Simulated assay, not measured.
Amino acid sequence: MEKNRVFNFRAQWPWVILLLIILAALLPLPYYMTQPGSAKVLEPIVDVENGDESKGVFMLTTVLVGKANVAEYIWAKASEYRDVFPKEQIRGTDETDEEYEARQLQLMQSSQDAARIVAFKAAGKEIEILHKGVLVTGVISGMPAAKKLVVGDLIIALNGEPIYTAEQLIQGLKKFSENDKVTLTVKNSDQKKEVELTLKPFPEKLVKNGDQNKFGIGITYPVTFTEVETDPTVKIDTNQIGGPSAGFMFTLEIYDQLTKEDWTKGYRIAGTGTMNIEGKIGPIGGIKQKVVAADNANADIFFAPVAASNYKHAKEAAKDINTEMKIVPVETFQDAIDFLKGLESKH
């Protein structure tokens, strides 16, 4: 009987090792993996009241982001168009899942607001811009704000002085030193309260070399909460797409529907880039992966931000995958319009 037991164990040990290998491969790591997402046609997503239709389409491009396991980490390292990043590069050090998702959705909302502002001004249409305060999208554990503020709070005053934008709050707090007390007026669900906080040093890992702003209350990623009222109205259904990188393409689609000219010229036009209210296009991450996504969607043209070498890397990816898609560099919304003005209509 004893010999049979030994024999059975030896017969099973390869399966035990295989099971351990599978479990190790699926073990989550403190990394995120990114890979090419999709190119989404914007016309069904963006609806300008009584907007004009076009023969072609504008498309936003996405990158898929998810927590990596061992197998995915190895896969990404062996792939040109998949990347892995330490968790801290994707999310704040102390950021919860709820805070990360809230921040991404708020950044998306901010990109929509900027898109409306730039497109309506360019089209000469009526628009009213109302800055309502600073939205809290995250707090740093161990800092004063962590005990008294929550995600979704809206800061509307600092020491009794109205606060309308994130920049105004940041500059206001820079006037104070360590251990100074400040009072914030905060709204949440129509309830208003006064919150007293004492400025404390930021954790060393969050202070950049040479940064003079070493003290604060511990709010991460403060965002200006803006209401934009337009005529005609604009509805944008992002279906839980987060982040600011679609801002530029939102702007093009809104402008295209606002004006009588068909700015697509019959082409399938993809692109990416953040948008600020001055019409400047900012860089994004995952540009090579977005080029792949656009090519998979049969795009004819891809707009790439010049900033942070986005255009350079987009050209490299286009050459590598041997696409016929034209890569066009843009620094401002007007750059894109100037290019489209000179573009011959597709027959």
Rank of each mutant, 00 (worst) to 15 (best):
V228H: 06
N239E: 15
G266K: 10
Q191H: 12
G243E: 01
D237G: 08
I269F: 10
G279T: 05
S189Y: 12
G242I: 05
V228N: 11
G285P: 02
E253I: 03
M275N: 02
S245G: 10
Q240M: 12
V207G: 06
G243K: 10
M275H: 04
E261H: 00
L258N: 09
T226A: 13
V291I: 14
G286A: 09
I269L: 10
M249G: 06
D231N: 14
I277C: 03
T230R: 01
L252S: 04
P283F: 06
F215I: 13
G247P: 01
K205Q: 14
D211F: 07
N298W: 03
K214W: 01
V234P: 02
I287Q: 03
K280Q: 10
I236V: 12
G216F: 04
G271H: 01
G216T: 03
V291R: 03
T233F: 13
K280N: 13
S189G: 07
A293C: 09
E253H: 10
D237Y: 14
S189M: 11
V195S: 04
A293F: 11
N296Y: 04
E196D: 09
I269P: 02
T224M: 11
W263N: 07
E194R: 14
I236L: 11
V228R: 10
E196W: 05
Q212L: 12
E194A: 14
A299T: 02
D300M: 05
L197M: 13
K193R: 15
I254P: 00
Y267A: 05
K290M: 08
L197G: 03
D190R: 14
I281N: 02
Q257E: 15
I284G: 09
E196L: 06
F202E: 11
V195K: 01
G243R: 08
D300R: 10
D231A: 04
Y267Q: 11
A299H: 05
A270K: 02
I254K: 04
K288M: 14
I241K: 15
T224P: 04
N188S: 12
I241D: 06
G285Q: 06
E278N: 14
V234T: 09
T198W: 03
N239H: 14
G286T: 09
Q257C: 06
D231E: 13
K290H: 11
K235S: 14
P201T: 04
I217H: 08
G282N: 05
Y255V: 10
G247D: 03
V291E: 04
L252F: 09
D300I: 03
N276S: 08
F250W: 11
F248V: 01
K205R: 15
V207Y: 05
K260I: 12
D295F: 04
A246T: 05
I236M: 09
N188P: 00
D237F: 12
V234E: 08
E204M: 03
E261N: 10
D262W: 06
F202T: 10
G243Y: 03
V223E: 05
G242N: 08
G243P: 04
E278L: 13
